[in-house]
Design a protein around this nucleic acid. Structure first.
Length: 103
DNA sequence: CCCGATTCCCCGC
DNA sequence: GCGGGGAATCGGG
């Protein structure tokens, strides 16, 4: 992992029309380890909004970097896949899951 | 004002 | 003890 890459992503985020809250969510999502999934609630708690789990999902929905941000690693607190709908196709999810399987 | 990638609690059986 | 349903919560358009 290159720190420069991470910074580059943050820079891109600033360029996008993302809200402060979304930026936080996206950053927290980028912190998700490879082959690991995180629940919306845990993510919300990490950013300081334990009750904003819903807003977190909304923020990820607006995710400007779906291929950069592992939003597919974000799942329900139940451990089940939520409503991942980036481009809106299950095929993409399968591809991302493949990445997850590599761990 | 309304909706949306969720979560938790309470009641019933 | 387990399952299901409804309400709560936060942010964005």
């Amino acid at each position: 992992m290159k720190n420069s890459d991470y910074s580059n992503i943050k820079n891109k985020l600033k360029k996008y029309k993302v809200t402060p809250f979304q930026e936080k969510v996206l950053l927290a999502t980028l912190e998700i380890p490879k082959g690991r999934t995180l629940s919306y609630k845990v993510l919300a708690e990490k950013i300081g909004h334990p009750k904003a789990f819903r807003a977190v999902g909304t923020a990820l929905k607006k995710n400007p970097l779906p291929l950069t941000i592992p939003c597919h690693r974000v799942i329900k607190n139940n451990g089940e896949i939520g409503n991942y709908s980036n481009g809106g196709n299950v095929k993409k999810r399968k591809l991302l899951i493949n990445e997850k399987a590599i761990a």
